[in-house]
């Protein structure tokens, strides 16, 4: 696995329990997968599955209690503060909520130059880069002088993508980047993600609850349930002919926007549900 950009091996994340001698809460229980350069890995799961926590652990925002995260051959599960700051050049993030991810009292330009100022980029160079970034995410260049409140959710998400791209990272963690957006906006932002990947060769860890979106975006897909990886493999296979019962249920529960196909899917789902119930019954009786 030397050609991997990022390797997650047996990752465990534990949050300390509340109160005296409380059991720690284990959000991620031994998850392993890898991402290659220029690849998109989709991470699917429902609420509480630990998908966001995995992203945060890679970014160093969640406590890794066991296992390793290897980036470019280097173990980054417990880096020094200094090293973590340097790593932000390579690993970036786009969050779900475009409203809270931009400081409402800073202009778009200020938000975008932030990562460059830290690295002491000359002001002129930084401003040129901001124009370049805004162009890359298809926003007008005068957007730099405006405040976040003047922009719609989709436009703000473009700004967030531009900020992630500012330092030319090799990996971007996309944490539900389109689930807060309207359908038509969502389609355009997804297109932008693909276009940027083609242009820059950046790899994505694409976290989402929406199987259809993940299918369209990902080369390989990992499915999470209660902090454990239940299925992992080629994107097409996992999202169309899943082997694990949970993935099967997940797939059949996502409604398709076609009345006839959906009726079929609903019937399949109810049949699967009955099948699983029968199996449980037999397992219990045995």
């Amino acid at each position: 696995m030397t050609d991997s950009l990022l390797t997650v091996d047996g990752l465990q994340v534990e949050y300390p329990g509340r109160g005296f001698r409380a059991q720690p809460f284990r959000a991620v229980k031994g998850v392993s997968f890898d991402i290659r350069p220029g690849e998109t890995v989709g991470l699917v799961g429902e609420s509480g599955s630990g998908k966001t926590t995995i992203g945060r652990a890679i970014l160093g925002l969640a406590p890794v209690s066991a296992g390793t995260v290897t980036f470019n051959g280097e173990d980054i599960s417990h880096p020094t503060k200094q090293r973590r700051r340097e790593l932000t050049r390579d690993i970036q993030v786009v969050y779900q909520d475009p409203y809270s991810s931009l400081n409402p009292s800073l202009t778009i330009g200020d938000s975008l130059t932030e990562p460059m100022i830290v690295r002491k980029t000359p002001k002129r160079e930084a401003q040129a880069r901001v124009r370049e970034l805004l162009d890359m995410v298809r926003l007008p260049s005068d957007a730099a002088d405006r405040m976040p409140r003047e922009f719609s959710g989709g436009q703000r998400q473009r700004v967030a993508i531009a900020r992630a791209l500012a330092l030319d990272p090799t990996l971007i963690i996309c944490d539900e980047p389109v689930s807060a957006l309207d359908l038509s906006t969502q389609a355009r932002v997804l297109e932008l993600f693909l276009e940027i990947q083609e242009r820059t060769g950046v790899a994505y860890l694409f976290i989402s609850h929406d199987l259809a979106v993940v299918r369209e975006m990902s080369h390989r897909v990992a499915v999470l349930l209660h902090g454990e990886l239940v299925e992992w493999g080629d994107g097409d296979t996992v999202t169309s002919q899943p082997e694990h019962p949970y993935t099967q249920r997940l797939l059949l529960a996502s409604p398709v926007p076609d009345p006839v196909a959906q009726e079929q899917r609903r019937a399949d789902r109810l049949r699967l549900k009955q099948l699983h119930a029968d199996q449980d019954l037999q397992a219990g009786a045995a």
């Binding site: 080369h219 390989r220 990886l229 999202t239």
Partner: peptide, 27 residues
């Protein structure tokens, strides 16, 4: 309708083999 994800999968990256179902015992 056009904006709905079509469910067209991405072609796998060259040289990447599928990992298949994991035996993590989550069942």
């Amino acid at each position: 309708f056009e904006a709905i994800p079509k469910g067209a999968p991405r072609a796998p990256l060259a040289g990447v083999t599928s990992a298949g179902l994991l035996g993590t015992g989550a069942l």
